[in-house]
C-alpha cells in the first residue's frame, strides 16, 4: 500500500502525518466539518440552524425534496445542462479551437478575443443577454425574424427559459473550453499531421483519427470539469432571471433550488438534504466517468 516501498517505518509515518497536518486541519475545517454538518442537518424533520438543534430524526427532508415539483424542474434542467448544453459547448469550442489553430495570421488576436468572456463578469454579461433574449427588443429575435421565424419569448415562456439558460451557459463556457482545447491542439506534434498527409488522410480523417484521439485527455478533462460545473450552475440563473428563478420557477437548477431554500426560505435542513442528494449524484457521476474514460482515452 505504501507508495515508497521500504520507507514505511513508524518514524516515516509519523513524519508524513506531521507534514500533512496543516492541510488536514484546513480540509477538516472547511470541507469535512461543513460536509458532516450538512449530512446531519439533512437528517432532521425540522432544524434550528442558528442553534444547531434539530427534531425528528429520519429521511423526512429527503422525502420533501424528492416530492417537490420545483426540485423536479431543477433536476430536469440540470440534466439538460449536463447532457446537452455541456457537450454542445465542448463541440462548439472544439470547432472554434480547430479553426483558430488553422489560421496563421491574427491567431493571437482571435485567441484573446475568444478568451474575453472568461474574464467578464457573469452578472454583467447576464444583463446583456437579458436584452439579447428580449422578446420585443432582443437581437436574437431580430435575427430569427430575418428568417421569418416568429419571435420567441425566451425569458417569459416557461418552456423556453431552459433553452435561454442553456444558450447563455454554452456561451459562458466557450472561452475556457476553447482556450484549453486550443492549447491541446497546439501541443499535438506537427509530425503526426505530416505523417497523416503522407499517408493520404483527408482533413476529416485527420481530425477524427489524429486530432481527436490526441485531444482525448483534454476533452475528458473538460467533460469531467464541465459535468461538475454544470451540476453547480447557479450564477447563470441568477444573472438571467434574478432571484425568482424564471417564469413559474422554470429555470431552477439544483444549486439554485438549494440557494433559494437556504437563504430565501430559511429552511436549512431541506436545503441540506438537496445538497446531499447533489453531492451523491456528483460523486456517482464522477466515479462512472473515471471508469468509462479509462477505456476511451489515450494518455501519453
Amino acid at each position: 500500500m505504501s507508495i515508497i516501498e521500504g520507507r514505511n517505518t513508524a518514524r516515516g509515518t509519523v513524519a508524513a502525518w506531521v507534514y500533512l497536518l496543516p492541510a488536514l486541519i484546513i480540509i477538516s475545517v472547511f470541507v469535512f466539518y461543513p460536509l458532516i454538518m450538512a449530512f446531519r442537518m439533512s437528517m432532521y424533520e425540522s432544524y434550528n440552524f442558528y442553534k444547531n438543534v434539530g427534531t425528528g430524526f429520519g429521511f423526512a427532508s429527503f422525502k420533501r425534496v424528492l416530492c417537490d415539483s420545483d426540485f423536479h424542474i431543477a433536476v430536469k434542467n440540470t440534466l439538460f445542462l449536463s447532457f446537452v448544453a455541456m457537450p454542445v459547448s465542448i463541440i462548439i469550442s472544439l470547432v472554434i479551437a480547430l479553426l483558430i489553430s488553422s489560421i496563421k495570421k491574427f491567431q493571437a488576436l482571435f485567441q484573446t478575443f475568444f478568451f474575453l468572456p472568461y474574464v467578464t463578469s457573469v452578472i454583467a454579461v447576464g444583463i446583456v443577454f437579458r436584452w439579447l433574449f428580449h422578446s420585443n427588443y432582443g437581437l436574437i429575435n431580430y435575427f430569427l425574424g430575418l428568417f421569418h421565424i416568429h419571435p420567441v419569448a425566451w425569458l417569459n415562456n416557461p418552456k423556453t427559459t431552459i433553452y435561454a439558460l442553456a444558450i447563455y451557459y454554452i456561451w459562458g463556457n466557450l472561452a475556457f473550453n476553447t482556450i484549453i482545447l486550443l492549447v491541446g491542439v497546439q501541443n499535438i506534434p506537427k509530425m503526426y499531421y505530416n505523417a497523416a498527409r503522407v499517408d493520404g488522410a483527408k482533413w476529416g480523417k485527420i481530425i477524427f483519427r489524429i486530432t481527436l484521439p490526441q485531444l482525448s485527455p483534454t476533452i475528458i478533462f473538460l467533460t469531467i470539469v464541465g459535468f461538475i460545473a454544470s451540476f453547480k450552475v447557479y450564477n447563470e440563473v441568477y444573472a438571467l432571471f434574478g432571484d425568482l428563478g424564471g417564469a413559474a420557477n422554470s429555470a431552477y437548477t439544483i444549486v439554485f433550488y438549494i440557494y433559494r431554500t437556504f437563504y430565501g426560505a430559511g429552511r436549512m435542513h431541506i436545503a441540506a438534504a438537496a445538497a446531499v442528494i447533489l453531492f451523491v449524484a456528483i460523486l456517482c457521476i464522477t466515479i462512472i466517468q473515471m471508469l468509462v474514460s479509462k477505456k476511451f482515452v489515450h494518455y501519453k
Partner: peptide
C-alpha cells in the same frame, strides 16, 4: 504527398501513439 506514391519515415518515426502497430500500418 499522398498522390506521389512515397513513403516517409520521420526522424521521430511519428507513429500514431493512440493506435496499435497494426492500425498504424493499416492507416495508409
Amino acid at each position: 504527398p499522398e498522390k506521389r506514391g512515397i513513403g516517409l519515415v520521420f526522424q521521430n518515426y511519428a507513429l500514431y501513439p493512440h493506435m496499435t502497430v497494426l492500425k498504424n500500418i493499416l492507416f495508409p
